[in-house]
Simulated assay, not measured.
Amino acid sequence: MTSSLPTGLRERKKAKTRAAIRAHAMRLFDEQGYAATTVDQIAEAADVSQSTFFRYFPTKEDVVLADDYDPPMVAALRAQPADVHPIEAIRRSIREIYDQLTPDEWEQERRRQRLIRSVPELQARNTQQYTQIIGLLGAAVAERAGLPPDDFSARVLAGAVIGAGLAVAPHSLLPEQGTDYFTDFERALALIEAGFPLG
């Protein structure tokens, strides 16, 4: 039977359920540790069935690792004017998405990053995901330039950008560092544009 909910309402309800599952999961991870928290406990706390949990997150790891910001960032990149340099287009698209985050959403992202760095299995899978992210970003860069989606130069540029983000994140996503992520990230992108001068 087809749902009678309008598409917009249905999507909002799905987004609300997904956010609730993640919020309860992160609370439980904080309270009792990642390893000690089970899918059943998360589902019970979020008042959903186990099957509903798995519709939103294939594994417990995905509750932490799923990055909701990558798809809209890539879409924003594709929407940038074709005559804008790819590094500037990436800078604009990242700003466009992340400038919309509230302080609470930023704190949730910092919590997510801290958890990833503290759990070896999350670190391992997170590293594997970067290959996919580089592929998505590289294909978008290539598309803007009228190149094949697997273009070598576009993929290398995407890898350099993701590498810059990785280099910056430990110093700016953690609150004790006291630095601004985008200020540092834009400095890193400027180094790529300038051909990596040292100093």
Score class of each variant (00 low, 15 high):
Arg112Gln: 14
Pro197Phe: 09
Phe57Asp: 07
Glu11Cys: 04
Arg112Cys: 10
Arg111Met: 03
Leu122Lys: 05
Gly165Asp: 07
Ser93His: 03
Thr2Pro: 12
Lys60Leu: 05
Pro148Asp: 07
Ala66Gly: 03
Arg114Cys: 09
Phe196Arg: 13
Asp40Val: 09
Gln132Ile: 10
Ala35His: 14
Glu88Val: 10
Ala164Trp: 00
Val141His: 04
Gln123Lys: 15
Ala154Trp: 00
Ile134Thr: 10
Tyr34Ala: 02
Met73Phe: 12
Glu11Phe: 01
Ala164Arg: 01
Arg78Glu: 12
Asp30Met: 09
Arg22Phe: 00
Arg144Phe: 05
Glu88Phe: 05
Pro71His: 12
Asp104Arg: 10
Arg155Phe: 03
Thr38Ser: 15
Gln108Phe: 06
Thr7Gln: 13
Gly199Gln: 10
Asp150Cys: 05
Arg91Trp: 04
Leu189Ile: 08
Asp180Thr: 09
Ile116Val: 13
Gly199His: 10
Ala160Ile: 01
Pro71Phe: 12
Gln32Ser: 08
Ala43Met: 08
Lys60Ser: 06
Ala36Asp: 15
Ala158Leu: 01
Val119Leu: 09
Gly165Tyr: 05
Ala158Val: 01
Pro58Tyr: 04
Val39Glu: 06
Glu143Ala: 12
Ala43Tyr: 06
Ser153Glu: 14
Lys16Val: 12
Asp30Cys: 07
Met73Leu: 11
Arg12Leu: 14
Gly138Phe: 04
Gln123Pro: 01
Gln50Lys: 14
Leu115Thr: 09
Phe57Gly: 07
Ile21Tyr: 00
Leu77Asn: 03
Gly159Met: 02
Leu115Val: 05
Arg78Lys: 11
Gly8Asp: 15
Asp104Met: 02
Asp68Trp: 04
Ala145Ile: 00
Phe29Glu: 02
Ala124Leu: 14
Ile162Trp: 00
Glu61Trp: 01
Gln100Tyr: 01
Lys16Asn: 07
Arg112Asn: 15
Ala142Cys: 07
Arg92Gln: 15
Ala82Val: 12
Pro120His: 08
Ile134Ser: 02
Ala19Cys: 02
Asp184Ile: 01
Gln128Asp: 15
Glu109Ile: 08
Ala140Arg: 01
Ala45Gln: 10
Asp180Tyr: 08
Leu191Ser: 14
Glu176Pro: 02
His85Cys: 06
Ala158His: 00
Glu88Lys: 14
Leu137Glu: 07
Arg92Phe: 05
Asp99Trp: 06
Gly135Glu: 12
Val39Asn: 01
Ala25Cys: 11
Ala167Tyr: 11
Val48Glu: 11
Val168Asn: 03
Pro120Lys: 07
Arg95Gln: 11
Pro72Lys: 08
Val141Gln: 02
Arg114Lys: 15
Asp151Trp: 02
Arg112Asp: 04
Ile97Glu: 12
Leu174Thr: 06
Arg91Gln: 13
Leu9Lys: 13
Pro71Asn: 10
Lys16Cys: 06
Gly199Trp: 04
Lys13Met: 15
Arg112Lys: 14
Asp180Gln: 09
Gly146Arg: 05
Arg111Ala: 14
His85Arg: 08
Gly138Ser: 10
Ala158Thr: 01
Ala124Asn: 09
Ala140Tyr: 00
Ser51Met: 11
Asp70Ser: 11
Tyr181Pro: 00
Ala140Met: 04
Glu143Asp: 14
Thr183Trp: 08
His85Asp: 15
Gly195Cys: 08
Arg144Gln: 08
Ala46Gly: 06
Glu193Gln: 14
Phe152Asn: 13
Ile116Asn: 03
Arg155Ala: 07
Thr59Asp: 12
Ala20Met: 11
Ala164Phe: 00
Tyr34His: 07
Ser3Pro: 02
Leu147Gly: 01
Leu115Lys: 03
